[in-house]
């Protein structure tokens, strides 16, 4: 089976996020006063083969720990979105 997996990587809580703060200030200056916080991050969409959803999830979590996220600074969230039909993407 092929699965569409989405990975969200962002700085851990407590780690300074200069990019997020700067974007927050820019939003405020554009008049979006109600915005309380911005955390900037990265989004990855992966198409992964695997026997079932759990296996895919644990594979991708392993990839996050090794490559997609920097465990020193970043947290990640893995969502297995859906199983893809057939061979094509």
């Amino acid at each position: 089976m092929r699965y569409m997996v989405r990975v969200l990587v962002k700085f851990k809580a407590g780690v300074a996020d200069p990019q997020g703060r700067t974007i927050l200030a820019a939003l405020h200056s554009l008049g979006y006063e109600g915005v309380r916080d911005v955390r900037a991050g990265k989004l990855f969409e992966l198409v992964v083969e695997g026997t079932d959803e759990d296996a895919v999830r644990s594979r991708v979590e392993e990839m996050c720990g090794r490559l997609l996220a920097n465990p020193v600074l970043e947290d990640y969230e893995v969502s297995v979105l859906r199983a893809l039909a057939g061979e094509g993407r």
């Binding site: 200069p18 990019q19 700067t22 974007i23 820019a26 200056s29 554009l30 900037a40």
Partner: peptide, 14 residues
């Protein structure tokens, strides 16, 4: 400008 955060120039243009 603005640290090039988000995208280079994306914030300065406002």
């Amino acid at each position: 400008s603005y640290g090039d955060y988000l995208r280079a120039g994306a914030i300065a243009r406002f």
